[in-house]
């Protein structure tokens, strides 16, 4: 496959369940090697999208391809390229960790020598070597998630579909898990990871999509979204005296898109550049407004989310 072919492409994707629209006209492209964070509140359609990409659900309408292969016509070829990890699943609890991985290694029909090496590598990667002989049922939730990730990596997939992998984990387990995903991303794997916890994604995603009520409200590389947002910068002004006068002056400024007063803070969506910001600051000072702060807010993942959606997320 050439570089131009995206790893994931959906066109006009729609999914209905018993009359309920889970995904609506969803167009998505994820480039090879990207770490794409899918953000959205519970019920936004993240799991449905991931299940469709994993060939576990059929779309009601629209086209989906993985690595240029249509999911409808080439499901088996797609299976070889993907690793799918659900939010949480009960493993075969009576099996030992090693047997569980061995079971899936055989199910993926890995040759014996490859199987042994792969098993050892995955035990090391998921830090479960010392637990290899323990029954899966005795593992903590964080360990079970790491084991599930190990199972997902068994066929060395080019694309990882991770559905809320850190949901319900304690902070230490979340940090451990993020570390593993980072190292996989560094190996060049394409990762599509869904979460409603922004902190989990902000660390290592280079692209994001915001899904809300089945619709993609924002999607692309974080840098380009931020650049797009720069066209209307967020300014924050802390006013100690002359708040009404300051608000009136800001409102009169031709570059002000919108304005909100919260306590002694004025929050402004501003379409001008640095020179216009300097003019506004000078005007406020000349009008005798006493200010403690005049700052431009930097757009991060949280900012993208808040401006791109209705903000229903933790």
């Amino acid at each position: 496959m050439t570089e131009a072919v995206p790893m994931i492409r959906t066109e006009h994707l729609r999914k209905e369940f018993h009359g309920h629209v889970a995904l609506e006209n969803l167009n998505l492209e994820v480039a090879r090697g990207d770490v794409y964070g899918l953000i959205g509140p519970n019920g936004a359609g993240k799991t449905t999208l991931l299940r469709i990409l994993a060939t576990l659900e059929r779309p009601t309408y629209g086209r989906v391809s993985i690595d240029g292969l249509d999911l409808e016509t080439h499901p088996k070829e797609v299976h070889r390229r993907i690793g799918w990890m659900p939010d949480f699943q009960h493993a075969f609890e009576e099996m030992t960790v090693r047997d569980y991985l061995e079971y899936f290694a055989r199910a993926y029909k890995l040759p014996a020598d490859v199987r042994r090496k792969r098993l050892q590598h995955l035990l090391e990667l998921t830090q479960l070597e010392v637990k290899a002989g323990d029954p899966v049922g005795n593992l903590s939730r964080g360990m079970k998630q790491r084991l599930s990730l190990g199972r997902t990596l068994m066929n060395d997939p080019a694309l990882l579909l991770l559905d809320e992998p850190t949901s319900g984990l304690d902070p230490k387990a979340r940090i451990d898990f993020r570390g593993i995903v980072k190292s996989l991303a560094a190996e060049g794997k394409t990762v599509l990871i869904s979460s409603h916890i922004l902190e989990d994604l902000s660390d290592f995603c280079n692209s994001v999509g915001i899904l809300e009520k089945g619709r993609m409200v924002e999607s692309g590389r974080i840098a380009s979204i931020v650049a797009r947002m720069k066209a209307a910068t967020q300014l924050r002004v802390r006013v100690l005296a002359g708040l009404d006068r300051a608000a009136a002056l800001v409102r009169e400024c031709p570059h002000t898109v919108s304005l909100q007063v919260a306590g002694e803070w004025i929050e402004v969506t501003f379409s001008g550049g640095a020179s216009e910001q300097a003019d506004l600051l000078a005007g406020l000072s000349a009008a005798g407004v006493r200010m403690a702060a005049f700052e431009e807010r930097r757009a991060g993942l949280e900012e993208i989310f808040l401006r791109g959606s209705s903000g229903e997320v933790s």
């Binding site: 299940r51 576990l56 659900p86 949480f88 699943q89 899936f104 993926y108 029909k109």
Partner: peptide, 13 residues
């Protein structure tokens, strides 16, 4: 019920 069916369906079997 346990969600283990899907993982098996995605293997090479």
């Amino acid at each position: 019920e346990n969600g283990t069916l899907d993982s098996q369906r995605l293997t090479a079997l």
